[in-house]
Amino acid sequence: MELLSYEFAQRALIGALLIGVLAPLVGIFLVQRRLALLGDGVGHIAITGVGLALLMSWSPLPAALLVAVFGALFIEVLRDRSRVAADVAIAVVFYGGLALGVLLVSLAPGGASTKLNTFLFGSLSTVSMSDLWVLGAMTLLIILVITFWGRQLFVAGLDSEVAMVQRIPVRVLGVVLSVMAAATVVVGMRVVGLLLVSGIMVLPVAAASQFGKSFSSTLGWAVLVGVVCAVGGLLLSFQVDVPPGPSIILGALVVFILAVSWRLVRHLQGARA
């Protein structure tokens, strides 16, 4: 743990903590709407943003954020205003984003492919101080939105028609959720990586859903699982010198398998009794 005395490691740790809290907080509203793969689609189109930044020598974070927000809104419009189903809309953005991103990186000056790898699977050394301020501000903003409109987001996700009758701005909230998902993807880009960030949005929620009996208790458990897996996975990656993204996601996967097994055992015990 000597590594933690280095500033880059401390910055990575703070980044992991932020995404550990934020990802399940946004992810639970996506899972509730059966949009678990939205983060995946947005993560892939953010690769286009990173590719564009590498090609034009821009800062990757704002470029990725801009393109990710565009991609998330595009999915929302396709889903809501056309006859394209949600999973197909996500797939369109997923493949289009990945293809365009790889194309732009291949056109970028030498070394861009190696840099891209750090964005795809996360990196311990790429979280800069300015990144951390941006990530912290986005996290705070999202937490404020959920504090004030969390109940409306919950009702709209539970039953959109009843929510409309109750004059809840369902469409606006859909857009807000899409933008929050895009921002979360970008917050997680540095530590977890664009290809895996959706995992930390979905797996802690899927695990917590196995033992939660209410939406609020599931949310609490999901954030706990998210923080433990993000910080634990990062510390593990310090120890064994692997990218942090895979170790964080594999940690969340282990928790998910344990939760499903626990529920299965309880179900079998209940059936025997």
Binding site: I28, V31, Q32, R34, A36, W149, R151, Q152, F154, V155, L158, D159, V162, A163, Q166, R167, I168, P169, V205, S209, G212, K213, S214, F215, S216, S217, T218
Partner: peptide, 20 residues
Amino acid sequence: SVPVSVKEFAEAGAVRGVRA
């Protein structure tokens, strides 16, 4: 997909507009 308690479900009926 995500558990919702009976109480939370009923509470959903009280949320109007952007007021909780």
